[in-house]
Design a protein around this nucleic acid. Structure first.
Lengths: 153, 153
DNA sequence: GATGAAACTCTGCCGCC
DNA sequence: GGCGGCAGAGTTTCATC
C-alpha cells in the first residue's frame, strides 16, 4: 500500500499540512506534479489516506470544555441502541469500543458545565458514564511515523 | 472570531475536506475566491483553524493495534520529566491531562502486542499505565458543529 | 509508473467600491 | 470587507517512454 519512500514523504507532508499543492510536494520530494497527484489519488483510493481535515480549536468556537467519558453499557441491546443514536450526540467527536470494564471511550466537546451535566443525563439512559475533564492538551493529532523506531519494538 | 454564517460554512467545508480550493468553496457558499482566501487566512491567523492534516489509517501503515492508556503519575517531578520526554514516544498520538485518579489519558498506535508491552515497560518508569485496547472505532475526528443544538444545553 | 507539454483552472495581488 | 481583473502558478489530461 505504501510502496516506497516517495509515498512516505508524501504522507509525511500531508500529515503536516494537507493543503500543500501537488506542485509544492513535487518540489519537496523530487517527483513531477502529475506523479504526486497520481500517488495521492492512489493512496486515497486505497484508504491509506482516509480524509483531509482542518482542525478547529473548540474553544474558539464556543466549546470551552473538553472531556473523556468512559461509558459502561452492560446491556447489549442498549449498547446497540446507543450506537444507532450516536448522531444525536454532536458533542462526541471520537468514540471507540475498548477492552476492560468500560466498553466505550469517548472524547467530547462541551459549551460549559451545564452542557456536560445535560450530556451525562442523556447518556445515562444507555449506561453508566464516567467523566474525566480535560485540564490541558499535551499532544493532539500527532503524525504517524514510519513504524521503524530506534526503540526495540 | 467566527463572525458570521460565511465563516461557519467555510469551517464546515474545511472540516469535511481540507483540500477544497478557494474557488470550490467560493462557488459553494457564494462569495468570491479572494474573499474566501482572506477569511481562511484570518481564521488561521486567529488560530480558529489550528492546522490542516491528512488522516492516515494506522492499520494500512503497519500499526495494527490502537489503545487508550490512562496514566497515573503521583510524583510531580516524574510527571514533568515525562512531559519533557514525550517525544521519545512516537506511539502517542494524543495526550491530555485530565481530572480524576489518572492524570493523563493517551491514545497510542502500536505495531503489535510486543510493541504494546514494550511501551508499557517504558512508561512504567514514570508512573502506572493502565491499558484499554481499542476493539473498533465507532467515530473518529467528527466535525465540530456550530454549538447551538436543538437540545437543551 | 514517470514525464512533459498543452489546455484549463486557480491563486495572489491590486485598485475600486 | 468584498469584488473583478489580470499575470503567474498550479492542475489535469494525454501521448510518450
Amino acid at each position: 500500500m505504501v510502496k516506497d519512500d516517495f509515498d512516505w514523504k508524501i504522507i509525511d507532508l500531508l500529515q503536516k499540512n494537507s493543503r500543500f499543492s501537488f506542485a509544492q510536494i513535487s518540489r519537496e520530494i523530487g517527483l513531477s506534479p502529475s506523479a504526486v497527484a497520481e500517488r495521492i489519488q492512489r493512496l486515497e483510493d486505497e484508504n491509506v489516506i482516509k480524509k483531509h481535515i482542518s482542525i478547529i480549536d473548540p474553544k474558539k468556537v464556543g466549546y470551552s470544555l473538553k472531556a473523556y467519558i468512559t461509558f459502561s453499557i452492560k446491556d447489549f441491546q442498549k449498547y446497540e441502541r446507543f450506537l444507532e443514536s450516536i448522531e444525536e450526540f454532536p458533542e462526541i467527536i471520537d468514540c471507540s469500543r475498548v477492552t476492560g470494564n468500560d466498553c466505550l471511550i469517548m472524547k467530547v466537546v462541551l459549551v460549559d458545565n451545564t452542557h456536560l451535566e445535560n450530556l451525562v443525563n442523556r447518556l445515562s439512559v444507555y449506561g453508566s458514564p464516567s467523566t474525566s475533564v480535560v485540564l490541558s492538551d499535551i499532544l493532539t493529532n500527532a503524525s504517524l511515523k514510519f513504524p521503524r523506531f530506534d526503540i526495540n519494538i
